[in-house]
Design a protein around this nucleic acid. Structure first.
Lengths: 219, 219
DNA sequence: CTAACATTCCAATGTTTGTTAGAGTGTTTC
DNA sequence: GAAACACTCTAACAAACATTGGAATGTTAG
């Protein structure tokens, strides 16, 4: 029998948010939810964890009011309870990257192999995409593309990429993106494309980073 | 016997930052450190906790690279390891305030009594302070004032306020501030001033909020 | 109604964390 | 050198947490 003592100092309240951010699994769920609303099953599958565990973590996130749920028939759809939550995730990630050497090393090692497009300005990328100079592909699952994607990007989920290579205009450089710097799907896409002789690069920005930078998102 | 397995997924690294933010005591220490570097003893005293406990929490914060320490003779001075850490704290606090009803209620209740200056723009406050239209007082301990304060503010620590009332120009409205919305020192200052018949208001901004808003800080 | 399914709840496990007590380091002052 | 001081480390315990197995809930489809 637990008593509801609510040791409610102001810091206590804020620490509930901190607690929600203190588990790697929950952070992964937040990043996935930043790509659009999802069911528990989808989340569990994409984060490779047991459904029960995902449910438990989602409960914790819901209690910290970072996520909301919506029932639709058999399924319960979870989503972040605001754009500010996605931006908080970016903020925590940036601070971690700035101060934790280990993380910076791990990230460098990860994206050392495939071509990362030099961080030219987001606007210049946008301009090239608009003019048709380059082809921007979104290699995330289609549902995430539907929930919001970069302007002028076309959906080309990693799993289908190989079969759908013919859809890509010949001779044009391809720029791939996925969920953000922690996501390896764009790396794999670039590898595959280069193997087929297609000029390909990746950008580490995902939709969340793009949006947080004040740039437009299409739907 | 613990093995140093370092389950180093990327999320694992970021969660170290989250863990550091998951304890109310640590958050309080972060807020205090945002006011300027401090020794363990000062921190323990201001946060009303045992020195040993403060030391333990500081160790955790240091391991998450959110704070740094610097030895100077007998004393070890702790400080945030970057402005970004202070801004992360603001970000977490803002998200908590936006999504946790309980916190918003607690805050409203807290600042219901004393006069909160209507959130007129920071610039207009600055202008009035510059022109001498109002007197801005910083009621934090003097050391924190020294480490950085609002432009045109004069130091008037809460503990000395009563003795030093004569220093205030007569007939002018006083605006008090302290560490931020969680800090009650400005509330107490306003109460005391009003009791003496002095027109007094508070602003909830502290130096950190002011600075994060892109406004200048004096030193 | 029942069956199938998505999701959550409950209970039990081992692990991590917060806290305090007491001892130990390193630095200054005499 | 010794004493005083600021701070940290070790050990210990209770509380909180993550994870898994098994059962329960609520919904749709028949």
């Amino acid at each position: 029998m637990k008593l509801n003592v609510t040791k409610s100092s102001l810091y206590e309240h804020v620490s509930r948010i901190g607690k929600a951010l203190s588990s790697p699994k929950r952070l992964e769920l937040i990043e996935l939810l930043a790509q659009g609303e999802k069911t528990v099953e989808t989340l569990a599958q994409q984060a490779r964890m047991d459904v029960r565990l995902a449910s438990a973590h989602l409960k914790a996130l819901r209690e910290a009011r970072l996520v909301e749920s919506r029932r639709e028939g058999k399924f319960i759809h979870y989503s972040l309870s605001g754009q500010d939550v996605a931006e908080l995730w970016l903020n925590v990630r940036d601070v971690a990257e700035a101060h934790l050497l280990e993380l910076r090393l791990a990230l460098e090692q990860m994206s050392a192999a495939p071509d990362v497009l030099s961080p030219e300005s987001r606007e210049s990328l946008l301009a090239k995409a608009r003019s048709g100079d380059i082809v921007v592909i979104d290699v995330r699952p289609e549902a995430e593309y539907e929930a919001g994607h970069l302007p002028f990007a076309r959906s080309m989920p990693l799993g289908e990429l190989e079969k759908r290579l013919a859809e890509l205009p010949v001779g044009k450089a391809v720029v791939a993106y996925c969920r953000g710097p922690f996501c390896v799907m764009s790396d794999e896409a670039v590898q595959l494309l280069k193997k087929r002789g297609i000029t390909a690069h990746k950008i580490t920005d995902g939709v969340t980073e793009w949006q947080a930078g004040g740039l437009p998102i299409e739907r």
